[in-house]
Amino acid sequence: MNRRGFIKRISSITGAAAFGVAPKKSAPQQGRSEESLAVLVDTTLCVGCRACEQACNEINPDLPLIPNDFFNDDSVFKRRRRMDTSAFTVVNRYQPDNSVAPVHVKFQCMHCLYPACVSACLVGAMTRDAGGAVVYDEKKCIGCRYCIAACPFQVPAYEYTLVLTPRVRKCTFCLKTCLTQGEVPACVAACPMRVMTFGPRAELITIGRTRIRKNPKHYIPHIYGEHEAGGTAWMYLAAAPFEQIDLPNLGYHPLPGYTEPVQHALFKWFLAPLGLFAVLAGAMWYNKRRNKQTEEDT
């Protein structure tokens, strides 16, 4: 086999692998969003009392118990917080350009319809429950923290301080604590302003649209999360531009739709490893023959 033939063969192998790689963006299946449970957050109502944070801390016994005073302390709003190992939800305060009064926004896991963390997890420790909750199984987790890197909303946190039993920590949608008992999530129940409405996703979208239509000047005419990243279970209404209240512009395609076609095509029929082995075998055979020839020549 000459040099030219060798290069030809290699390129044909890589070409085959690349053939299926053209990224296809999978569209949301219709059924998926209709069935699942969701929450609509109307940020225009929130007064920043942080009763939701407190309720979350109380309902999750494995979170470190935080004293009452912390939730009445207004000074936490001075900095922009994010979820960590001690809190599954946080309320931040923003001062958007178009508003005189500050705007409060509650953050937690968005429970995406097409979760990037589930797609990234190697061992299936992150799964999406049929009801809509994205749940974490610490028994399966190997601690690779790919979910943390994959999440576009920077939700999951990792217990770095626990050397032997670290876990990924994130909002559970109160799946075991409330939803299975037929109750609403603890934060939703605790909110005195009823900022959050819990229910089937399709109904919430109707409620959100009705609110916008009834008061068009009050709201940005968009439900954040209806389409973002393929749709999320937690959706937001706001009077301020969403970028200004830390809800990122992610586009409307499911994020796994960008990565999965590449990965799945690459490993289809075990093609990539086979290709690699074939290349290695070819190289071995070629080297062996060349050595043999040089031996013969000398």
């Binding site: 109502l45 005195p192 009823r194 409405t197 009705t210």
Partner: peptide
């Protein structure tokens, strides 16, 4: 309870 149409319950109504 919160009404299916998104109407707040009594506590929510008072506060809002």
């Amino acid at each position: 309870a919160v009404n299916a149409s998104g109407r707040p319950d009594l506590m929510g109504a008072y506060h809002q």
